[in-house]
Nucleic acid binder design. Structure first.
Lengths: 216, 216
DNA sequence: GTCTATAGTCCGATAGAC
DNA sequence: GTCTATCGGACTATAGAC
């Protein structure tokens, strides 16, 4: 075999390996997100994740060295998704427009990544053992920065006075509620956020109440 | 031993047994609530619960026949606590007063029973496998009844028009958020709802925003 | 990269002495 | 009622063949 051939072969092999690797890692991450969302870290089993990913358990552990490592990878990816809408919030000109957009994005995220939202919720309810370092630094800093945006609007007399951080918490929880508590909502309304009409209704009502309350 | 003595002894024994039984069952329920809150049903272990209840595992299983039976007992008790504030909501005369009272009660519940709230959240996030039958019947009926109260106020022109059920969901999630997501809130604010000043601030802001929005 | 086999641990639940 | 001992099964992770 000539060197050029060997090189080509090696490159091809490497490319193919990376492609398979990427596909398998994605399959595992998706399966893991589903199982962690349903049962939390301790309740989830590698058997279940491997089975959902159409893979043997040792093969799964070839890609992620441990259950803990897999969980941290999943959480890392979710953190970026979770924070993305907030990063876009800025003073702009119209608070109503800016906040409506932010709330819309958060609700859309709940609809598109309901399992990610549940993994997040499980992690926080369990005391945020893994996310804590990230929340105490990056999230806290982002919240402080975005709270300043709200207080700017208050000084300009564009919105009334309230605690900016509590308002952000309320946006987060009302929007994520439709992902995390979908089972409860389905029991009462027989509808899911996946339903197009219901989705529009959620967006309308959440924005209406958070921005204007119920007395106007 | 005379019959009267035997009867007295028997009664005494029975009374003592029931008293010990009541104490131990309470100890177990409290320990179980704590562990189920933290790890969910599958993640919780009887070892941990027994240890927290200062009891051996077989002794725990003497009082509750299985992990599942224990979990159902805990959930049953939580369901009654959870629904209690909503049952009190009625037309009355002043919507602001009625709803303020309801929100206050829900926040107070989050403060007094944070572990119960977390067990509830875990159960719902996991698809409500145990609570489902109760939510589909009792909770759904209660929600429909209480939605009618809100719509009465709308007809009377006392409050603006919105979807009553979504408003109830928003009250639930914003109030329970301070129990369920306490770890996240602590990371950002370094405070808990247990803190008296923070507690007052939560009540003020949640009521302000849910009832009046941010533009007045 | 993927498999079978298995080590080593922990789980829920039971048996049986006291 | 409470204990020790233990069963059978499920768990994470590794060893080693292919």
């Amino acid at each position: 075999m000539l060197p050029t051939d060997r090189d080509a072969q090696a490159l091809d092999n490497k490319a193919k390996k990376t492609r398979i690797q990427a596909i398998n890692e994605k399959k595992i991450m998706e399966a893991a997100t589903e199982v962690f969302a349903h049962y939390g870290y301790r309740g989830a089993t590698l058997d279940q994740i491997a089975s959902k990913a159409d893979m043997s358990k040792p093969n799964l552990l070839y890609y992620f060295n441990s259950k803990d490592a897999l969980y941290r990878h999943v959480l890392r990816r979710i953190y970026d998704i979770w924070l993305e809408p907030l990063r876009g919030l800025d003073v702009g000109q119209d608070p109503e427009k800016e906040l409506s957009h932010y709330i819309d994005q958060k609700i859309e995220h709940s609809r598109r990544y309901p399992l990610a939202s549940k993994v997040w919720a499980n992690e926080i309810i369990g005391g945020a053992p893994v996310l804590k370092p990230l929340l105490e630094t990056d999230l806290q800093a982002t919240v402080k920065r975005k709270s300043r945006v709200l207080r700017t609007w208050m000084r300009q007399g564009k919105i009334s006075r309230f605690d900016a951080e509590h308002f952000l918490f309320m946006i987060w929880t009302t929007t994520q509620h439709y992902a995390d508590f979908s089972a409860q909502i389905a029991c009462v309304t027989h509808k899911t956020i996946e339903d197009e009409r219901f989705y529009m209704q959620v967006k309308k009502n959440v924005k209406k109440i958070l921005l204007h309350g119920i007395f106007e």
